[in-house]
């Protein structure tokens, strides 16, 4: 049943997210191509402001789409389980655990797809800009700065397998965030008689503050100093805490759905 649930949840979110992510690809490729064309037909002087504007806008849009995708998956969780759609979802022969896991898996898949789309769009746009301004001194200068930054980061990450812990931290952070938002939405919609969306948003902020306080307190207690984000021990301890937070949020969300559901 979980497979079927994942299939239907994935398709339901596809109806909303596919157009958004396609527009991200179109924006990146389109603005890169437009810049290339304008530059090569010799209209840079008159229309330079246009491609400058489009490139900046597309770059922002690429990365904004990642956040928009995450928000859309949270809205889907709310709509599918806590509004009229819940009359169907909660009467399907599936458990609360399967419902939460399906939403979680599909949310992560769509967030991953959005990152791939954003990076692909950004990469194509950068490639087209390189082709357009490859010989431009300023462009080469900025490219060198970026290369240097990435080189320094890669050197840093190879020390003590830091790349591994950074990847683990990113993954566990996603897990904890998704389950925390699910819990906040569940508490908000089940406890509030009116303004359920506002209540859910308030609980997202409240739980986020609680999470930061718990993490920082734990790190301070564990290490004797306040956490430094790039520190190896901090990454390991925070990853562990993220897993604990994800499990706690999952258990509470499941319990609320099984015992306090009220739609």
């Amino acid at each position: 049943m979980l497979k079927k649930l994942i299939k239907h949840d994935f398709l339901a979110q596809k109806r909303i997210l596919q157009p958004i992510l396609l527009s991200v690809l179109i924006a990146g490729i389109g603005s890169g191509l437009l810049t290339f064309i304008i530059h090569n037909i010799g209209l840079s002087d008159r229309l330079g402001w246009l491609y400058f504007f489009l490139v900046i806008l597309s770059a922002y849009y690429c990365f904004l789409s990642i956040a928009v995708t995450a928000i859309c998956t949270y809205v889907y969780y709310y709509k599918n389980l806590m509004t009229d759609e819940g009359y169907l979802s909660h009467t399907l022969p599936v458990t609360a655990t399967q419902q939460i896991c399906s939403k979680f898996v599909t949310s992560l898949i769509w967030q991953l797809i959005s990152v791939i789309c954003a990076v692909a769009s950004y990469a194509v746009m950068s490639l087209l800009l390189t082709l357009t301004f490859g010989s431009n001194d300023q462009f080469i200068y900025f490219s060198k700065i970026l290369q240097k930054i990435f080189f320094n980061i890669s050197v840093y990450l190879t020390i003590d397998m830091r790349w591994f812990w950074l990847v683990l931290l990113t993954i566990t952070d996603s897990f904890a965030t998704v389950f925390m938002v699910y819990l906040a939405i569940s508490i908000g919609t089940i406890s509030a008689l009116k303004h359920k969306v506002l209540a859910s948003i308030a609980f997202v902020f409240a739980l986020n503050v609680a999470r930061v306080v718990v993490t920082q307190t734990f790190l301070a207690f564990f290490e004797g100093i306040l956490a430094n984000n790039m520190d190896l021990e901090t990454m390991i301890v925070t990853s562990f805490l993220n897993i604990v937070i994800a499990i706690v949020c999952f258990v509470f969300t499941k319990s609320l759905m099984e015992k306090k559901l009220n739609i």
Binding site: A12, R15, I16, K79, D84, E85, G86, Y87, L88, T91, L92, P93, V94, T95
Partner: peptide, 21 residues
């Protein structure tokens, strides 16, 4: 439970399908 949901067919007093489906 899940077992009873398999044998119960429920029609609520409202429409429950997503509008985009």
């Amino acid at each position: 439970s899940v077992d009873t949901k398999r044998i119960v067919s429920y029609l609520p007093d409202r429409t429950y399908f997503s509008k985009s489906i």
